[in-house]
């Protein structure tokens, strides 16, 4: 494969430029890539970017708390890991910027939950309720939950 630019040297470098509405792919030789200024900046990896951003503290980090797991934003900045699925929305303004810098995007466009997987969330909640009902010996309640689970096609309930 020859370089797209000079059409002389063999292409050894593959670039993908994402422009609004279209993606341009370029196969360049090293010297043409240099001329375009494409080889100069050393790119930071997502993990390096994350580690850098986690160091930036702000005033309300201790007061910003996730209601799902009681993690504070300060704690998140220390460990770099979320405590539960609600953390994202709890720290949203901070996370939005974080994601933009790490991924150059803050919007998921990939696969979403299938209808079966959406049901899965309900099924799991019912299972948890059933477990609690049984622990509290609330058998009538448990029977009702079992009926609901059967409507989802789940029979193997403990």
């Amino acid at each position: 494969m020859l370089c797209d630019e000079c059409k002389k040297n063999p292409a050894t470098i593959f670039f993908k430029e994402v422009l609004p509405g279209k993606t341009v792919e370029l196969h360049l030789c090293e010297s043409c890539a240099h001329k375009r200024g494409l080889m100069t900046a050393k790119k930071m990896s997502p993990i390096e970017i994350l580690q850098k951003l986690l160091k930036e503290k702000s005033a309300h980090d201790e007061q910003t708390i996730c209601p799902g797991c009681y993690m504070t934003l300060a704690e998140f900045k220390r460990v770099g890991r979320f405590g539960c699925s609600k953390c994202v929305r709890s720290f949203e303004s901070y996370i939005k910027n974080l994601l933009k810098q790490i991924h150059q995007s803050d919007k998921h466009i990939g696969r979403t939950l299938s209808p079966g997987e959406k049901k899965g969330i309900e099924v799991f909640k019912l299972r948890e309720e059933l477990k609690k009902a049984l622990e509290n010996e609330a058998y009538e309640e448990a029977a009702k939950i079992r009926d609901k689970l059967r409507k989802f096609g789940i029979d193997n309930v403990e």
């Binding site: 994350l50 979320f82 974080l98 803050d106 998921h108 979403t112 939950l113 899965g120 969330i121 789940i154």
Partner: peptide, 22 residues
């Protein structure tokens, strides 16, 4: 997923422990 239900957000997609996998 059909049995246990995944953590998913319409805007941010599948939610992972570390933002680098979001």
């Amino acid at each position: 997923g059909a049995d246990l239900g995944y953590a998913f957000d319409e805007t941010y997609g599948f939610i992972t422990s570390c933002p680098t996998n979001f």
